[in-house]
Nucleic acid binder design. Structure first.
Lengths: 220, 220
DNA sequence: TTTACAATCAAGTAATCTATTGATTGAAGT
DNA sequence: ACTTCAATCAATAGATTACTTGATTGTAAA
């Protein structure tokens, strides 16, 4: 079946879109947005069998969305570049705007937990500069270590109740985690407000911050 | 099969991505980017049977990418909003950057025809303001009528040879058509340069211009 | 070597997607 | 009412995709 150059190019684009066309692969990409990971770690986090995760990752690789490297007997996958996060953001925006189903879930589940306007990246930068807020990273420690917002405090969601003392009760907390639909940040904000503390959520998560070209700190 | 709110949302995103995951649907979207069209007109232009085109369009509608309205016995489809063009642009960018296959075709076919740097939208605006260039729209007349760049001259590609007299030979021509991979603009630039006339190509096409919020003129 | 283990590959089944065909619906015109 | 025609629906066969299982590859350590 021969086709013109335009059809061939469109088929290429379609292949990339199809690679994004499965919830498991989108979730793999969300985790890869936090930093490089081995296949087994990804499989466990997303709840897939090892073989299944491996095959999904290979589809993403064929589509040019992720890259990998071998180190000893481990193979580490990572996003091909920051542009992947931009594409995911565009997909999310479009879906939020015009897909009734997504909007319904968002209203039903997420709106309850956080009726306050999320903070934009620009706002956060301003507030940090004027020393008014604490930036709180509620992801697991290893993800924090691979990269986080400069000056952020890391308290994984599960430890938040026990470590409240580490947060100055008079400063507003701005919490973030993996991305716009990462549940951790919603839960953290709800928990803090339940204690009467001022808290809001960053509009999206770490990968979007990084893709926007803003500074990133690491712990290793 | 129950799943958390996040999985449900990701499944929604995946559905939108899958809707983009077929070359025929991408081509339908490209045509819809020029303006509203009936099902039969779309089917003919993309080379699909009526029933097949109808079904693809319905998939796009379920994904919230297009909308339609009935007028008499015709049903007209259109892009749901300008954001769809932004998503398509993001998909194109990502594919061009990281998909070897796309890059190979682009080099092999398109680079031959246009070794000159395409003109950005900003450049075009500047040059038009200083009166140095002729903006040439090489799409069919009906597409031009539904919306075009302000001040553009419409000469469909097939008529270009016969109507060369309408173009001032001393002014550079900037040609555009449906989008970044619309062949008309490439062919037009090649034909003009073969005549020894200065000509370049706008970096992408009409839908991207419109989605960028720049002014649009119509003929009806 | 042998052993261990991360990851991929290969094969098979169930589910989903694509395109065609012919029947059906809905709105105009006769 | 009847006809016409745009578009959708319904049913089907063929192709592609998803996930599982068990075998295989590649690297490191015993």
């Amino acid at each position: 079946m021969s086709m013109g150059p335009k059809q061939a190019i469109l088929a290429g684009f379609a292949g990339v879109a199809r690679a994004l066309g499965h919830a498991h692969r989108l979730e793999l990409l969300e985790h890869l947005g936090q930093g490089e990971r081995g296949v087994d770690a990804l499989a466990v986090r997303v709840g897939l069998s090892l073989a299944n995760a491996s095959q999904h990752l290979q589809q993403l690789r064929r589509a040019g969305l992720v890259a990998n490297r071998r180190d000893g007997k481990f193979i580490y996958y990572r996003l091909a570049d920051d542009g992947v996060t931009d594409l995911l953001t565009a997909l999310r925006r479009q879906s939020e705007r015009n897909l009734a189903e997504v909007d319904r879930i968002r209203r039903g589940y997420f709106a309850d937990r956080d009726s306050f306007e999320p903070v934009s990246r620009e706002d956060l930068l301003e507030r940090v500069a004027s020393g008014l807020v604490t930036v709180l990273d509620v992801r697991p420690q290893d993800e924090f270590g691979q990269g986080h917002l400069p000056g952020a405090v890391n308290i994984p969601l599960g430890e938040l109740q026990d470590r409240l003392a580490e947060l100055d009760p008079d400063r507003e907390v701005i919490a973030y985690c993996r991305g716009a639909y990462c549940v951790f940040a919603f839960e953290a904000v709800a928990a803090l407000r339940a204690q009467g503390r001022p808290a809001r959520r960053l509009v999206d998560g770490f990968p979007e911050w990084k893709a926007a070209g803003l500074p990133v700190a690491t712990s290793f």
